[in-house]
Amino acid sequence: MAAKTTNQKAWFFIIPVIALVAFNALIPLMTVVNYSVQETFGNNVFFWEGVKWFEQVLHSPRFHASLLRQFAFTFIILAIEIPFGVAVALSMPRQGPWVSVCLVLMALPLLIPWNVVGAMWNIFALPDIGFLGRVINGMGIDYNFTQQPVAAWFTTILMDVWHWTSLVVLLAYAGLRSIPDAFYQAAKIDGAKPWAVFRYIQLPKLKRVLTIAVLLRFMDSFMIYTEPFVLTGGGPGNSTTFLSIDLVKIALGQFDLGPAAAMSLIYFLIVLLLCWVFYTLMMKDEEQ
């Protein structure tokens, strides 16, 4: 065999990418790392603090509480949006003019800017002037999301389901469409009931797209900020203060840059770790 040619010129060609990634991700991340191990009182004067901020954040009941809220929120919306999205995708027409109509309707919520979604739902759910608020109160249920934690959670979850189920629907619908007709025909000949068709054909074939859907919805909902911030501002009290809302309060409200930076890094590592765990678990069978 010929000797391997060594050509260092190749590095030259990836300089643009390195520069782009550096400015876009590495350098901002490093400033956060920089803050997380130092204390500052302004004027660019820094004192070395080591892992103090990390210890402080990890032992803080406030961080525990927002982390718990965050997990609860993400778990609830995943438990609703994934099955609901699959159900909607299954009931959509497979062909004909209604397909485009359904797809456009489904895509609409995804096109609305997040702060607008928050503002829309804020007004929509206000107990005195909002349509939703009036209807619920009209049914004799005392509902006021600005004052009751349960109502605030209900509204936030409803808003997220409205905003993001479409994404699951579109992914699942694409997955369903890619199943060849022969599978349905074979199932018909084998005498399979609709449930068996779903359980043994559709669900296994949807596995990949649903993995993507769960990952996307997990990451997005775990980092949710704008919509609940506009809707409830994290209240009433701290009841809807999710991780990112809490983070912004610490960083910009209290200007505690050190703890905020430490919290950012912990937050980032949690997201990374959970995504990795999800992905590994869901793809385990594929490798066999």
Binding site: A182, F183, Q185, A186, K188, I189, G191, K205
Partner: peptide
């Protein structure tokens, strides 16, 4: 009469198996 009550079997161009079974 639908296929499941016709007592026929069919093998398709692309193999159809139930992946998870």
């Amino acid at each position: 009469i639908p296929p499941d009550r016709r007592n026929i079997a069919q093998v398709f161009q692309f193999p159809v198996v139930y992946d998870t079974m």
